[in-house]
Each structure stands twice: as C-alpha cells, then as structure tokens.
Computed example of a mutant assay.
Amino acid sequence: MEINDDLLVSHILGEVSPATAEEISTWRNSDPANNERYQQFRAIWETSKNINYIGTLDPQVSLQKLKEKAAMQKAEDDKVVPLNRKNSWLKIAAAILSFVGCGLFYLYQRNFKEIQLITKNEVKVDTLSDGSIVTLNKATSLKYPIRFRGKKRNVILTRGEAFFNVAKNKAMPFIISTGSTTIKVVGTSFNVKNKADAIEVIVETGIVQVTRNGNTVSLKPGEKVLVKQNPLLFRKEKNPDRLYNYYRSKEFVADNTPLWRLVEVLNEAYESKIVISRKELNELQLNTTFKDESLDDILVIISRTFGVTVEKKNGAIVIK
C-alpha cells in the first residue's frame, strides 16, 4: 500500500480501516523520518482545533499565502520523507481548512512557534511556560510551544519516555499526543513511555484520561494503561512497582519484584542484554533498593541473593 498524504490525513481523522491503520503503523516504525512526518500532520491538526482566532479572514488571500508557503517548503520536504509529494501541503491544508475555516493553517504556521527538546545519552529536565515540569529519559523527543495559547496546552511526545508534573489549570487542560494516543489532564503527575510500538501511561497523582480511537479510560494514582498497535490492545491495570521511575530517582526499588521484571528494566536502563536461561528463575522475588549502583554490582547482588551464576557470553549476560 502506498502511504500518501491523503491516507495520513484520513488516519488522523479516524477514517481508515484497522488493516490500513496497521499498515500505517508499520510504515511509521520503519523509519524515524516517516514517524516525524506523521507527527507534523498531527501537530497541525491538533493545534488548528485550538486556535481561538477573533477577526476577519480573506479566504483568497489566505489560500494564496498557503500556496506560497507550500512552494517554499517543497524542495526541503522532498529530501526528508519518501512520500507522494504532489500538492502534499495543499492536501493536508485542505483537510484542516474543511474543519476549522479557511486561513487557519496559515495562521498556525505564522504564529505557532515550538521547541523540540531531544535527549540522546542523558536525562533532561525542563520547565514549560505554564510552570509544568517535564523530565525526559534518554533517547526522547518532545515538542511544545514557546507559549501555550488558546484553550488547551498541547505537547507532542514523538518518541521515548517522559515524566510530567503538570501545573494545575482547570480552564486550560494539558494534552499530550503520542502515537495514536491522547493523554488529557488538568494538574497531575504521571509517566508516559512511547517505545517499541507500545505506549504506557502510569499515574502518580491526580486523574489522567487516556484516549485511543475514541475509547477513553480514566486512571487514578497507582494505575496504568498499556496501548499496543499490533496486536491492538488498550488495557487498564494496577501498576505493580516503582521501577519505571529509575531515570528520575537514580535508583531501582524492588519490592517483592520478580526477577524477570527487574531484568527487563535493567536492560532498558543500561542498554544491556541480560537473559534468564531457566524459566524457574523468572518469578524469584527480590526485596532491595539499588541506588547509583553499576550494572556489575547489581548482578553480583542478584547472584549472591539467589545462588545463581552470572556469565557474560557472546555480547549477552546470562543468568543461570
């Protein structure tokens, strides 16, 4: 299937079949540039819905400015994503204009200035214009406006993981778009992860609404939702541990935590490949806290606690 601009617009508007949605998901995950293109379209759509414009627009003038903008961007866009480029910006503009009125797309391009905060091998903390504080894990990308305008505070988590401590403002909800999922809050704290074609939201304080394809769940403190694209999954459950918080707290808190779960988090945190060779070891319970420990020191403690052997072999670490 050819993934063109019209198809992306239809997907954002929820007008494609489950099979087509799955193909678009595969296309997005095959190349970071593809996903970046999709997120650009979604950002335009989400922002255009919230523009509170008071004044008079001349449709012909606005359309002419839009065409000029498209012509200027065409050469640069052709180098980024292998899509069907013919009139691509006019197509997405047409979809938006049909919902929010002629000229709003141009206003968005002119007035909406955003920051893209990207982390590679470090954790970053930033304060947004409304006073909300966000902590980004490694390999994360977050887009947000220099100043929030309109009736909502919109940000986009393109990839990775972030913890949001949102400043309370009942009149201006805080909305995070990540993949095909939308997260809405007023003032609360929660963790969002968008990795490996799955989205996870864990709530620490307040109430969080998570929406996907028209389905919404409300999460309270200690609850989480897991969203997977393939196979389709939208499941709410109790969050079993505090290990998700390691990149903020610099510690791994194991409280009756099964070994498989700790290994899962260690592999993510240290970019390692730890393998449990025997199934009967998976559910061994661990009760301890590792604070600022090296991976080698943690493995030594695991070995001594359970009387197991830890062996490094062919680039992997085998627990047996």
Rank of each mutant, 00 (worst) to 15 (best):
residue 234 F to K: 00
residue 192 V to S: 01
residue 217 V to C: 05
residue 4 N to K: 00
residue 244 Y to E: 02
residue 315 G to S: 09
residue 193 K to P: 02
residue 155 V to G: 09
residue 192 V to P: 13
residue 233 L to D: 03
residue 225 V to R: 06
residue 235 R to H: 13
residue 81 V to I: 14
residue 7 L to E: 01
residue 13 L to I: 07
residue 226 L to K: 09
residue 179 G to L: 00
residue 225 V to M: 07
residue 92 I to W: 07
residue 318 V to P: 00
residue 45 W to Q: 04
residue 44 I to C: 11
residue 55 G to V: 10
residue 304 R to C: 06
residue 222 G to V: 07
residue 73 Q to F: 11
residue 152 K to Q: 11
residue 46 E to N: 13
residue 258 P to F: 12
residue 1 M to C: 07
residue 80 V to G: 00
residue 68 E to K: 14
residue 146 I to C: 03
residue 315 G to N: 02
residue 4 N to Y: 12
residue 269 A to C: 09
residue 310 V to A: 09
residue 28 R to Y: 04
residue 240 P to M: 09
residue 131 G to Q: 04
residue 276 I to Q: 01
residue 241 D to I: 09
residue 85 R to E: 14
residue 175 I to Y: 06
residue 149 R to I: 10
residue 246 Y to V: 05
residue 303 S to W: 14
residue 145 P to Y: 05
residue 267 N to Q: 08
residue 301 I to G: 07
residue 53 Y to D: 05
residue 41 F to W: 08
residue 95 A to N: 15
residue 215 N to Y: 13
residue 278 R to C: 09
residue 245 N to R: 09
residue 82 P to G: 02
residue 84 N to R: 11
residue 137 N to P: 02
residue 263 V to S: 04
residue 210 V to G: 03
residue 93 A to Q: 05
residue 292 D to L: 12
residue 52 N to S: 15
residue 255 D to V: 13
residue 46 E to V: 10
residue 168 K to F: 11
residue 39 Q to K: 14
residue 238 K to W: 06
residue 32 P to D: 06
residue 145 P to A: 03
residue 159 R to Q: 15
residue 244 Y to P: 03
residue 87 N to E: 12
residue 8 L to N: 00
residue 290 F to I: 15
residue 14 G to W: 01
residue 318 V to K: 01
residue 87 N to R: 14
residue 186 V to N: 10
